[in-house]
Amino acid sequence: MAREIKETPVLSGKNADRFEKATKNNESQRVSAASYNRAQDTYNRINRKP
């Protein structure tokens, strides 16, 4: 049997504070246009294949 997938824990203490700060900061962030367009192209290319 393969190893179990690690469960996502309930965040507390420093982990929770760091996560909260990062997610708040992310609200005003965007990936680069190059990353975004590359992903869109990949998605469309894979979906277009019969």
Binding site: N26, Q29, V31, Y36, A39
Partner: peptide
Amino acid sequence: EKTRLMYFDLIKF
């Protein structure tokens, strides 16, 4: 640990 939990915040996407 043997594995690390990592995440990507889709709001940036």
